[in-house]
Design a protein around this nucleic acid. Structure first.
Lengths: 128, 128
DNA sequence: TTGATTGCAAAGTGTTTGCAACTAG
DNA sequence: CTAGTTGCAAACACTTTGCAATCAA
């Protein structure tokens, strides 16, 4: 069964306090800087587990890397991500879901999943 | 300037006749099977060029690999992809775009870009 | 001729796995 | 005690780069 370890707790702690999507390597670096060193492998393994448990969200970055974030809402949602400061906002997506369902039906598809992320500049970053 | 080479022509030819998204490696294998061998590096380089020229579309697969396809429509659009046979349908996305714009405005973001792909089973694959 | 293009090998990036040592329950 | 977890090193998958040879214009 699942065991609670120092490493797992520290990874979660970093995720809890970060409002942005971070890569496994970035999280690893943060832990290292904090003095609490955790193996990179362990970071990957725990992130994977957390994703499986639906505790953290994952999105694919442009270089194919996975980026993780512990989101506030535990229901399905999407993100609006600032490409400059990386900050992200969780957005309501009922309209998107409706579009996805309708589109799938229209083409005889049984929808299984979808990805959707919006990228742009947040107010702060846009004005400087 | 840009030069027209045998390699570039053959890569485009394979893309023209494929209704599915394919990875660079898959395209490379197809070329090799056809007898017209082209270096993997060259495949990557030409695909990159074609994407820059907006001749082919690219989406990120789940393992972080890029998948390419030459789409019929040359305007912005999205895809409905069958996870079983890989076939994809180009779908109209005005509703999605509207949602993206509205959502961005609502949060003070200047929208730059967005990704959105729908995954599911096509009629044929669902019924067997 | 000559600069763009090719293709090999090597390097790079992000992630996963094998396995012995460690540790929470 | 003992099964889950860790962490290193090595393996992996995909992509890019260095560079000399080649080729289109």
């Amino acid at each position: 069964m699942k065991r609670s370890t120092r490493q797992r707790a520290e990874i979660l702690e970093v995720l809890e306090t970060s409002p942005v999507f971070s890569t496994a390597q970035e999280l690893h670096a943060v832990l290292r800087d904090r003095g609490s060193s955790v193996g990179l492998t362990t970071v990957y393994r725990n992130l994977q587990a957390l994703v499986d448990e639906d505790v953290v969200d994952v999105v694919l970055g442009t270089r194919g890397e996975s980026m993780f974030r512990k989101c506030a809402r535990d229901t399905h949602h999407h993100h609006l991500v600032c490409t400059r400061c990386r900050r992200s906002v969780e957005v309501d997506s009922s309209d998107l879901e409706r579009w996805a369902d309708a589109t799938a039906r229209e083409h005889g598809f049984t929808i299984l999943d979808h990805v959707a992320e919006l990228f742009g500049l947040c107010q702060t970053c846009a004005t400087r």
